[in-house]
Computed example of a mutant assay.
Amino acid sequence: MHDLITSPFQGDHLVLRPGSPKGLKIPRVKFVQLKAAVSGGEAIPAWLADAVNRSWGIDLTGRCAAGTVLVREPGPYEFSRATWEINLGCDYDCVMCYLGEKRFEGLDMTGKRRLLEVMAAAGVIWLQMTGGEPLIDPDFPGAYRFAHELGMQVEVLSNGSRLHKDHVLALLVELPPSKMSLSVYGATADTYDTVTGNRGAFERFTAGLEKAASAGLHLDLSLIITRQNAHEAEAMRAWAKRLALPFREYANLSPTIHGTAEPLPSQSPEHLTHRAPFTGCPAGVTFFHADPFGRASICKVGRRPNIDLIAEGVEGLARLGGIAGSLMLRTGGCTGCQLSDSCRVCRPMAKVFQEAKAPLHHYCQHGMREATR
């Protein structure tokens, strides 16, 4: 497996180390020089060996560039990031899950490899693998390894329920993710197991978290705060601080991807936060999402229209920018809204709330004003 990746990126050129969140920016002339060294079987240029030693503490002096550096070619569009739901199945049964019914279905391993090849050809450098729960997919090890072989920096979003298993941790230590984000659902067994609907889940999560932290994986924690665990919010924060791990809090829940409102009653009102005004995002422009069947959409929320990447390949992504533009139009109940310049949700998210017939105060400034009167 290669030690470094070099790739064009939005007018610049990068050198990355698999599994590391850090990177080096290099001028085009050095990218060309490095590419020539790889194709010509030459040694790693001295300037790169010095920079790598300073950044990552590894000595590549005198090493052959071929086999050490993987050269990524530019994609035909501007896409550099993607998320992929390898499946929607999960071993937890959280009532606040935005996925709703969590069916374990999708592409076989041949299809998964095809999808990853399309993503790489599109120029995707940073790939987030998620689910459902990605680590329970039997194809996860093969797909994860193949993404690394293609030169993608892989981030994993997980509930951490399988990290205590030696073969899972061994894979992640051998090929470290650039980041692994673990969801936390409570600070005690009673609360955690109740929220996840899985007896013994807290014990397995704790064991896996301690093993992953001890192994030096790049971890961060997502503290999911709901009515059921809000009384342990401070204990969850203290846990993250004790482990010296970065963490973020999520209390604002959304309807399911099917447009139903079941998760919303689980919100903890005192922990809800005001989103920043929505000023645009790269969805469908430099970023896209793929579901378990290889259908590309602008993001996890704006799932339709979508593009079948297995059938259409990279060329299908040419339509995604137009889809993004159409989905961002203020329509339906938002047409003519005088607060649109300060709206805190994107149009696809607002549409999901509207389809779920959610009260305005869950997502709209008008509703927030009414709720505080």
Rank of each mutant, 00 (worst) to 15 (best):
G325D: 10
S326V: 03
Y363C: 13
R204Q: 15
W126P: 03
A37S: 14
H218K: 05
V195T: 03
H361F: 15
L116P: 04
P141L: 07
D139T: 05
A189F: 04
N159F: 09
D137G: 04
K35L: 12
G100Q: 00
N198W: 11
G259A: 01
D190K: 07
A51L: 11
H274N: 09
S340H: 07
R114G: 03
S222Y: 09
A201S: 15
L264S: 02
L339C: 01
A233G: 04
M180G: 09
R72V: 05
R347E: 10
F146H: 08
N159R: 13
G100T: 00
D3N: 12
Y77C: 02
Y192E: 01
A201T: 15
V95G: 06
W47E: 06
S342T: 12
D341T: 08
A189P: 03
R199S: 04
Q153K: 08
L243T: 03
I5K: 09
L171H: 11
G322A: 14
E355W: 00
S266K: 14
M109Y: 02
S254H: 01
D59T: 07
P177Y: 10
W47K: 13
M96Q: 14
A143Q: 04
W84E: 13
N229H: 10
H289C: 02
M180A: 12
R63M: 06
A215H: 05
S340K: 06
A187H: 10
V52W: 08
P282V: 08
M152Q: 11
I86V: 15
T130A: 13
G280H: 05
H258D: 00
W56S: 03
A230Q: 14
V154G: 10
R28K: 12
A207S: 15
A49L: 02
A261Q: 00
R347N: 10
A37Y: 05
K300M: 07
Q338E: 01
L88M: 15
G259Y: 00
I44E: 10
E312D: 15
A230H: 14
D166W: 13
P282S: 09
G75T: 03
Y250T: 10
L99Q: 14
Q338P: 00
G367M: 01
R248H: 02
I298S: 05
G333Q: 06
S268V: 07
V71D: 00
A49Q: 05
C343I: 03
L329H: 06
D59R: 11
